[in-house]
Amino acid sequence: MKVLIIEDEYHSAQRAKSLLLEYDQNINVVDTVDSVEKATNWLVKHQEPDLLLVDIHLADGSSFDIFKKIPVKNPVIFTTAYDQYAIQAFKINSIDYLLKPLDFEDLSQALNKYHQLNYDRKSIDSLDIQRIIQSIETNQKNINLDF
């Protein structure tokens, strides 16, 4: 399995890579990129990996900007230190949503779910990502209205 890590915190990226390899030594972390711009460029220039492990908040913006700029058909495991209101949307529309710091048990469960679902990359529609983005934006607007 080929995995691209999109994470702007060096230690978090290294921890993710270490946990992926602990789960399965045969996982190939094809690269680690740390920004929306670099991730977008990487995905345009390279063959899509089997799975994306994506931090939501990057130094140059939200990782959702990647999905707005280019169609991405990969399954995604999102990671973040906050945005707990988004968890429900992600649980329905993506493989998983993991809170940082990542731990082996949570990542293992997400990877097991990935394998159980036996994703066919051709059948994953980028519209699913768009629905996730819309759901989060709606939740964020509702949260802002409460204040």
Rank of each mutant, 00 (worst) to 15 (best):
A86I: 06
S123C: 12
F147I: 13
H115Y: 07
D120K: 09
L145E: 10
H115Q: 09
N139L: 15
L52W: 05
A89Y: 05
S63E: 04
N41S: 05
Q88C: 03
Q84W: 08
T80R: 10
V44M: 15
L4E: 06
V76R: 02
I129T: 13
I66H: 06
A81C: 09
L58S: 01
A110V: 12
S63I: 00
L53K: 01
D24C: 12
Y10A: 03
H46M: 02
F78V: 04
A39K: 07
Y114I: 03
N93A: 10
G61K: 11
A59S: 03
Y82F: 14
S135M: 06
S108L: 09
N28C: 05
I5Q: 04
Y85A: 00
V36M: 10
P71W: 03
F90E: 04
L98I: 13
S18G: 08
I132D: 09
D24W: 10
Y85Q: 03
S18M: 13
P49Y: 13
P71M: 08
I143G: 03
Q134K: 14
L19H: 07
Y85K: 04
A13I: 11
E7T: 05
F64S: 02
L58C: 00
H57F: 10
F67T: 03
N118C: 05
Y85T: 00
Q140M: 09
D34P: 00
T79F: 04
K45H: 07
D83N: 14
I124V: 13
H115C: 02
W42R: 05
K73V: 03
S35G: 03
V33A: 04
E48W: 15
D31N: 08
H46W: 00
K100H: 07
E105Y: 12
L51R: 06
V44E: 15
L98R: 07
N28R: 07
V33L: 05
L52Y: 03
I124R: 08
T32W: 01
L4V: 08
I6W: 12
V36D: 00
T80M: 08
K69G: 01
